[in-house]
Nucleic acid binder design. Sequence first.
RNA 1: GGUCCCGUAGUUCAAUGGAUAGAAUAGAAGUUUCCUAAACUUUAGAUACAAGUUCGAUUCUUGUCGGGACCA
Length: 603
Amino acid sequence: MQPEIVKIMRVVIQVKEAAAKAIHQLYGVELQANDILVNATKPEFTGDYTVVLFAFVKQLKKSPDALGQELGDLLLGEYKGFFTAFNVIKGFLNLTISDDHWLGFIHSEYQNSLFGQSATNGQRVMVEYSSPNTNKPLHLGHLRNNFLGRSIAEILKTNGYQVTKTCIVNDRGIHICKSMIAWQLFGNGATPASTHTKGDHFVGDYYVLFNDEFKRQVEVLKAAGKSQEEAEKEAPVMKATQQMLLDWEAGKPEVMELWRTMNSWVYAGFEETYRRIGSDFDKTYYESNTYLLGKDLVETGLEKGVFFQKTDGSVWIDLTPEGLDEKLVRRGDGTSVYITQDIGLAEQKQKEFNAGQSIYVVGDEQNYHFKVLKLICQKLGLPSADGIYHLSYGMVELPTGKMKSREGTVVDADDLVEEMVAIARQKTEELGKVKDFTTEELAELYDTIGLGALKFFLLRVDPKKRMVFNPEESIDFHGFTGPFIQYTHARIKSILRKSGTTKRPPDATRDTQSLLPLEKELCIYLETFPSVLADAGAEHDPSKLAIYIFNLAKIFNSFYTEHSIGNAENEEKKTLRLELAQLTAQTIKTGMNVLGIRVPERM
RNA sequence: GGUCCCGUAGUUCAAUGGAUAGAAUAGAAGUUUCCUAAACUUUAGAUACAAGUUCGAUUCUUGUCGGGACCA
């Protein structure tokens, strides 16, 4: 074994490659390292890593026991100093890795502030997330979106990608006209400044007013004998809104002016929220600029025969061969539909950034839409089409069911953040551990903890799955939570402040101590961090990382309770444990930062 | 009508076809002369149902029941 490789290569990979080589040597069968299943050994068995043998039993015509014995014997002989023991139980070959190897790993990485980071790979990825509408403020669902988008972007950066974060703002259409109409009717010239209201909430309030007024007018018309449908069509506010949309499209100056003004209020509000929750974008697109994109692509598609025209002039694509149906891409009156501008924007982004991968963080109610989008782009032959990936996430629900604006059950993002921070404050004051902090330091700490709890809560779940947010139970700082991890970090930093960092001189000879079970468990788990980051990136799943950091903190806490660091049995142990503590703190910090969560030095 | 997703402890979440299905919380019982008890230790508790595929199924296939989304 080359010593350099030992340091760089992950242990699991080494085990796989060694096993593949051994099988080749013993039986002449060529296997790829990745075809071999290697897991961490379950705690109730002896060993560190386990080769699952069942898969080869048939092919090699060996009993699992015999195969395990032969393989174990060969591996132990060939890789002295790496493997130190093995046992075979049923079809499982449990291998023990030498303490020397783990010690070497800790010694070489404990000061590495880039532990887990991959070298740049020269590939560009775009991540589009957030995608707000300008008629109302952000809610809990947007928070999940923002945290996912931001963290997946950061994860991909650590994986060596060059990442561009984009945002498409839905700033036009009937919804914003509703707010505008309501403001004209009921606003009396009020502004966010005059009412001391955050701009996005201000505009959102008029959206609510619109709906109230609309409902009222519909009732009046129904009382006058109209059907529901007729009433909704004829309600004066609705007619006014539709006229306003036409005026907007025609570029009528007063309408444009009002639209710009109201949107600017909203952007000021969004800006504040984004700053608070840590979302930022390298490039923001506005639908008012992009909604006409893609029209020329409809022509291209018709020429290429990808699209076809019906007798009423509407243009369609036939996706029945793909198991979907026919999809409209341009209406008979020549106006385009939602998907057309998405195709156009995809093309434009490709021209601007030419990213190999384009990730769209969008709710799973649009699964069908993105399936269609990708297919159409592929059929049109857009070079970036294969790189389209819909990072589809499930809705955040309340214990009572879905959030409904009509029933006032929408959880507002700003309110929720403030509530979390307030609870962090209350909890911190109760514990009274940071009485010497300045006001600024306290404010920062409350933010760190409150936002940490919220972000971790939303990121710890597989994005694809729907999740339930229980306002009472979710605001917990114990157990599988952000503050638990932050606390572990703060405690480690406290130990390091008191015990000093490690005293190992750079030329110190490698020690010969043996690892205690809890020390070893921590080593093994730390060593997997880079592959967890890689997995989380490849799977587009930050929850893998969140779960890892939580487990790491838990393992450290068990270790810490059992073994003294500052008053270790001897200097050698003390040095090792300080190194373990340093690397654990570093790993927690890197992992949490990648999730967009800060970790305090003290709390 | 068609397509897709989801059903795991009381609750919220895990488990690339692998060993006795893990955590957290709520419940029960403990741990402070010593590095931060927002911690630690012990305990009890679950794969919706029925078939099939195989050495082995929470995972794959089919059906039933339940929840959700989308398309026209």
